[in-house]
Amino acid sequence: MPSLLELQRDFLAVMLRRSDPATLGRHLQQRGDLARRIGVYRTNTLENFATALGAAFPVLRAWLGPEDFRAMAWSYQRRHPSQSGNLFNIGRALPPFLAGALAGTPEEWLADLARLEWLVQEAMVAADDTACFDPRALAGVAPMHHGELRFRLHPSVRLATLAHPCFAAWEAHQAGKPPQAPAQAGTEQLLVRRAGEGIELLRLDAGSHACLDALAAGEPLARVVAALEDIAPGSDPGACLAGWATAGVIIGVEPV
């Protein structure tokens, strides 16, 4: 009998198709129907992975169809096998995997779709925070220190700059319609957040994205204003911040 470690390494290699089933078979009592019995575990390993990945990327799955999605999932699994007993984490590397695999093809937009869906997943499981921004928190801050203020965003807020616009495909899927490939090329900037019991996606103009991006990076107000001015000269930063506070995207301010 091999050691526990040796046995498990042989088992793993067979499951990941790095070794022939005979590698495991030499440790087993079964002889006649070895392939079928090992096949149950191989099927479980593949299907559990593909099912969990499909739950995290439902729009991508709908676009590819179940068979192509499953084939893609297994190909991805060989390069990026799960590293945790928690299957939630397996989707993290899918966007860069697809970006590499689909670069230069008509389907390269799917890497952006995967990026968007992963941000949706992150937003869904982000921490709760019921705080609301209270303007009175600014009352005690001397105007000379306003530029040092750092605002806090809701933990579920995620920002995306996509090279291919995917909002429409995501929105169509939410409505039960088949997702469509982007009609035209062009950058799309989005805000993803949890709202109520679901997920909300908003298209952002360049100024709002610059403002929120700086806030999300923890920049002080002076730099947020400068970022907004760079991208959208003449914009009203006060109105921009007030709008996001009212919407519950900005939920607080750190003490100066």
């Binding site: 575990y41 479980n44 007993g85």
Partner: peptide, 12 residues
């Protein structure tokens, strides 16, 4: 479920 940092997410 796994070894050497790789998890198969099955009950082996």
């Amino acid at each position: 479920s796994g070894v050497d940092g790789v998890c198969l997410n099955d009950l082996l």
